Simulated assay, not measured.
Amino acid sequence: MRISITDYAVGAALAGDLANTSPTVETTAGEALPTPEALTRFLAGHGLRLDALAGRAPTADDVREVQLLRREARGVVETETEEQAVAGAAVLAGRAGLSPVLDRDPGGRWQWYVPTAPGASPAEELAAIIGIGLLGAVRTLGHGRFRACAAPGCRGVFVDTSRGGRRIYCMPDLCGNRLNVANHRARSRLGGAAR
């Protein structure tokens, strides 16, 4: 697998999304990656085709390794300083990442890529993608974009790679909507009581 250094947003988003599959984030939903089939859906949802899974489906061992990786990814996103984030991301990137290479993209332009080691496990390939994405996010956007979700009761984390940098929810469609609905209901109750 070749990981683009310049497309850091993929790995940065993957870090938060993977961390947020934990049952400690969505306590009512439970474990979001309980089976190999769930892992397959998660990877497909992110457009990832791992070399480690070429010609085979994930196993229960692959799922356990990815579940352990999500703790590490969360830990890097939750770091207090840029230095801690860089150190943690570098460890993840080194799991399967080899020396960067300069190669042509499909359009013929030269691009930096990090190939992954032959024989790397799915978790090791994901660690490299996440690590490189987080390193790119620190360099390009700064550590201030590593955030916890602002929704009350949510324990989700994310890296805000949006242009404006104003994102506050780990899952805007879910957490943001919940808060908007709760606020609307509260306003409606107040409005009804005032009449």
Rank of each mutant, 00 (worst) to 15 (best):
29 A>R: 15
167 R>G: 01
160 D>M: 04
124 E>M: 02
147 R>M: 02
54 A>T: 13
150 A>G: 02
186 A>W: 04
129 I>A: 11
83 E>H: 08
82 E>K: 09
47 G>E: 07
179 L>I: 08
96 A>P: 06
111 Q>H: 08
167 R>M: 00
97 G>K: 05
35 T>C: 09
88 G>D: 10
32 A>N: 09
65 E>S: 12
158 F>E: 02
149 C>N: 09
118 P>Q: 11
101 V>R: 15
72 E>M: 12
101 V>M: 09
132 I>V: 09
27 T>V: 13
100 P>R: 10
78 E>D: 14
54 A>C: 03
66 V>M: 07
154 C>S: 12
194 A>R: 13
150 A>I: 03
74 R>G: 03
154 C>N: 13
141 L>N: 01
156 G>D: 07
58 P>S: 04
47 G>N: 10
71 R>C: 10
107 G>M: 10
8 Y>C: 03
144 G>S: 10
184 H>M: 13
164 G>M: 02
168 I>Y: 00
195 R>D: 01
124 E>C: 05
75 G>M: 09
179 L>Q: 15
194 A>W: 00
24 T>K: 12
39 L>N: 03
165 G>C: 02
37 E>F: 06
30 G>N: 10
104 R>I: 04
168 I>P: 03
131 G>N: 05
153 G>K: 10
42 F>V: 05
36 P>Y: 10
161 T>Y: 03
129 I>K: 09
99 S>E: 14
173 D>T: 10
183 N>K: 15
55 G>H: 12
3 I>Q: 05
47 G>D: 06
145 R>K: 09
141 L>D: 00
67 Q>F: 03
63 V>G: 04
136 G>I: 03
70 R>Q: 06
100 P>H: 11
66 V>A: 07
87 A>N: 15
83 E>M: 08
13 A>V: 04
174 L>H: 05
147 R>P: 08
76 V>P: 07
7 D>S: 15
74 R>Y: 01
119 G>Q: 08
96 A>L: 07
33 L>K: 15
103 D>I: 03
20 N>S: 14
104 R>C: 07
4 S>H: 13
28 T>W: 01
52 A>H: 05
175 C>D: 11
123 A>D: 04
40 T>K: 04
26 E>F: 02
100 P>I: 05
120 A>D: 05
114 V>C: 13
184 H>W: 14
107 G>D: 06
6 T>P: 02
71 R>P: 01
3 I>L: 12
176 G>N: 02
181 V>T: 14
85 A>Y: 04
47 G>V: 02
111 Q>W: 00
35 T>E: 08
85 A>H: 12
16 G>A: 13
170 C>L: 07
65 E>F: 00
106 P>T: 10
123 A>S: 12
44 A>I: 00
143 H>F: 01
36 P>K: 15
23 P>Y: 10
95 R>W: 01
171 M>G: 12
155 R>D: 08
26 E>Q: 07
97 G>I: 00
156 G>F: 04
43 L>A: 11
162 S>D: 04
151 A>N: 14
125 E>A: 08
7 D>L: 12
146 F>D: 02
37 E>G: 09
42 F>K: 09
29 A>S: 10
35 T>N: 14
27 T>L: 04
8 Y>S: 05
194 A>C: 00
123 A>R: 08
191 G>N: 14
105 D>S: 09
126 L>Y: 07
7 D>V: 08
127 A>P: 01
10 V>D: 07
